[in-house]
């Protein structure tokens, strides 16, 4: 999966959980700072991405990410590793 395609998937799943239009979620969006996201919501984003991408996402990966762009980079690496 190309990074651009993956970015769309990630942004849309985050937007679903946060309950905002996908346009509001940019690569620079910091979910903890801007949306006060808690760990349960983070896990929910992880669950949705796992179901869509068919790949395991570890809790550590989720807790590590700083912003949305960082999350996309990380998942892109994981998806490539799998290939």
């Amino acid at each position: 999966m190309e990074r651009a395609e993956l970015a769309e998937v990630v942004r849309s799943r985050i937007a679903q959980v946060v309950g905002v239009p996908v346009d509001e979620i940019g690569e620079g969006t910091d979910l903890r700072d801007e949306y006060e996201m808690d760990s349960l919501e983070l896990m929910e984003i992880g669950t949705r991405l796992e179901n869509t991408l068919g790949t395991r996402i570890s809790a550590d990966d989720l807790l590590e990410m700083r912003n949305v762009g960082h999350c996309i980079d990380l998942l892109h690496r994981r998806v490539q590793e799998r290939v």
């Binding site: 349960l40 992880g46 669950t47 949705r48």
Partner: peptide, 9 residues
Amino acid sequence: ATVPAYTVP
């Protein structure tokens, strides 16, 4: 195994 993380709450 794919249930939402919000299932319990």
